[in-house]
Amino acid sequence: MAKKYRLGVVRKAVNVLVTAFLNRGVPIAGSTGWLLTTRGRKSGTDRTTPVNVIEVGGERWLVSPYGRVGWVYNLRADATARLRRGQTTETWEVEEVDAATAGPVLRAYVGKLPVTAPFFDAKASDPAEAFAGEADRHPVFRLARSRA
């Protein structure tokens, strides 16, 4: 049974540290970290959180390894993602993908960032189809079109 994500004190502290590093453009070892800014679906104010962006099949992807969290709902309401690391900012239109498309991306994500593995029922060695079965719990977004 996959572990449930809880934003506790330790995770909040880690997010503060990671955000500080990414604000300065300092990469985190073993990470593909960016700061994702979305428009709040209810408040309309900007919300920023650290995320990992991975490249699979020549495309870039946002994966929610911890499930349907705030930024997922925000992107569903407004499909514009601003990604920032240091002085580099990119604005993208995103599209949520279906389970069949998400499966190989989720598998690659767990392989690249094994710290997220406990939040999945599928194991890194499982086929992409096993991960496709979890796509409803781990939304995947294709970074579709840059708006420079």
Results as ranks from 00 to 15, higher is better:
residue 54 I to V: 13
residue 56 V to H: 12
residue 59 E to W: 06
residue 60 R to P: 10
residue 60 R to K: 08
residue 61 W to M: 04
residue 61 W to S: 08
residue 64 S to I: 01
residue 64 S to Y: 01
residue 64 S to H: 06
residue 65 P to I: 05
residue 65 P to E: 04
residue 66 Y to C: 12
residue 68 R to M: 03
residue 69 V to D: 08
residue 70 G to Q: 11
residue 70 G to P: 10
residue 71 W to S: 13
residue 72 V to I: 05
residue 74 N to M: 04
residue 74 N to C: 03
residue 74 N to K: 02
residue 75 L to Q: 10
residue 77 A to K: 02
residue 79 A to M: 04
residue 79 A to K: 12
residue 79 A to H: 12
residue 80 T to P: 14
residue 80 T to D: 07
residue 81 A to K: 00
residue 83 L to Y: 00
residue 85 R to Q: 06
residue 85 R to V: 05
residue 85 R to L: 02
residue 86 G to Q: 05
residue 86 G to V: 05
residue 88 T to D: 03
residue 90 E to I: 00
residue 92 W to T: 13
residue 93 E to W: 00
residue 94 V to F: 00
residue 97 V to S: 06
residue 98 D to M: 05
residue 103 G to E: 10
residue 104 P to M: 01
residue 112 K to V: 15
residue 113 L to Q: 13
residue 114 P to C: 03
residue 116 T to R: 12
residue 116 T to G: 10
residue 117 A to Q: 14
residue 118 P to E: 14
residue 121 D to P: 15
residue 121 D to Q: 15
residue 122 A to M: 11
residue 122 A to S: 14
residue 123 K to R: 07
residue 124 A to P: 15
residue 124 A to R: 13
residue 126 D to G: 05
residue 127 P to S: 12
residue 128 A to L: 06
residue 128 A to V: 09
residue 128 A to E: 15
residue 129 E to K: 14
residue 129 E to F: 03
residue 130 A to E: 15
residue 130 A to P: 15
residue 131 F to W: 08
residue 133 G to W: 00
residue 134 E to P: 11
residue 135 A to N: 09
